[in-house]
């Protein structure tokens, strides 16, 4: 392919991914409210559209039409920059997630990911470590003590859990011998899923992912009984919508990462033994990827409405005294596996 074709194909993929995320977030917010209602034995939103399916669209319209209030004590530039950073980080992480195997469309060999990067996993880790800036800047620039406390809590929390997240990923890298997400997926063929081979690493990664996305039970940066609204107390209208969108987009990226690293990505065990055609197999595999992601998203929502919030010191001691040693034990476990079975 020459350079123009590469640019055109990449642009198409970028637009497709962004549209997919936006649509997914709209449905995710709706399903979060419906599932929470179901768990709490309520009815939930059911008026706008068929069974309330257009509720999120109505909410977005409401947010867009609201007045954008910027506090006079705030740092205006940073106040505007913060939601932009949060959104940029959330969206650009999707670039390296493989949705399926390489396919041939109209004679072109197309990879079902935006960018096939050698250091894909490190790229994701680098961007998630930047996600903290959106929240920290929001907390600092608002000029409110609740926001500041939320921002500071979030930076401490994210740094602590990034460590155990990085160490859990190291176990995956040992087994797959690559940082390329597509190769990590291919290394998990059959039932050799990383979730089965290294269950401890799977658990530490999932817990860290919850902490990194600021979801309950780790949503201390926005704990409403203590901090009003946390880092986004002073945000309204579009900018608030930006943070909201970023949080849900982060949830999707976390699910996609867990799927890619631990649940075999787009692979269905032994599907090639069934002798289906290439097209059908590929379609099933892409479908399997999305099914796994949807299941994990349901799990995120399920946990949110089942487990109460941690106290701040509990959060820190869980991160450093439980998750961090466990993730190191996982590395030793994986190294022993490789040594004994020559995986």
């Amino acid at each position: 392919m020459n350079i123009t074709e590469i640019i055109v194909v990449s642009l198409i993929k970028i637009v497709l991914v962004i549209v997919m995320i936006l649509v997914a977030v709209i449905f995710l917010v709706y399903f979060e409210r419906r599932i929470s209602a179901w768990i709490q034995y309520r009815i939930g939103p059911n008026r706008v559209g068929w069974k309330g399916i257009l509720q999120t669209t109505a909410d977005v319209m409401k947010l867009l039409l609201k007045e954008d209030i910027v506090p006079s004590a705030s740092n205006k530039t940073l106040h505007t920059l913060a939601p932009i950073i949060a959104l940029f980080v959330a969206f650009s992480t999707y670039a390296v997630i493989p949705f399926g195997p390489d396919v041939t469309i109209f004679g072109y060999q197309v990879k079902l990911m935006v960018a096939d990067v050698n250091i894909g996993v490190l790229y994701v880790l680098a961007l998630t470590s930047l996600g903290v800036y959106g929240i920290t800047f929001a907390g600092y620039s608002s000029g409110s003590k609740y926001s500041l406390l939320g921002g500071i809590r979030s930076s401490a929390q994210m740094i602590s859990y990034e460590v155990s997240m990085g160490f859990s990923v190291a176990g995956v890298l040992l087994l797959s011998e690559s940082l390329n997400p597509q190769k990590i997926v291919l290394a998990q063929s059959g039932w050799m899923w990383n979730a089965i081979l290294q269950p401890i690493g799977f658990i530490t990664f999932v817990v860290s992912a919850f902490a990194e996305t600021n979801r309950l039970p780790f949503d201390l940066p926005e704990a409403e009984p203590e901090l009003v609204g946390g880092y986004h107390t002073e945000y309204s209208s579009m900018k608030f919508a930006g943070f909201f969108l970023a949080e849900y987009a982060n949830m999707i990226i976390a699910s996609a990462m867990i799927t890619t690293l631990y649940l075999g990505g787009w692979q269905i065990p032994y599907i090639d033994k069934l002798g289906l055609g290439v097209t059908l197999t590929t379609l099933l595999q892409v479908g399997a990827f999305f099914l796994k992601v949807i299941f994990l998203l349901f799990f995120f929502i399920w946990v949110r409405w089942s487990i109460p919030r941690f106290r701040y010191d509990q959060l820190m001691s869980l991160g450093w005294k439980v998750m961090f040693p466990l993730s190191i034990i996982n590395i030793i476990w994986v190294a022993c596996l490789i040594m004994i079975f020559n995986l």
Partner: peptide, 18 residues
């Protein structure tokens, strides 16, 4: 990016804000 921008500068900002 991970070490300097993602970890060290976050700690810097943390102290400056406190």
């Amino acid at each position: 990016v991970i070490v300097y921008a993602g970890a060290i500068m976050v700690l810097f900002l943390f102290v400056l804000m406190l």
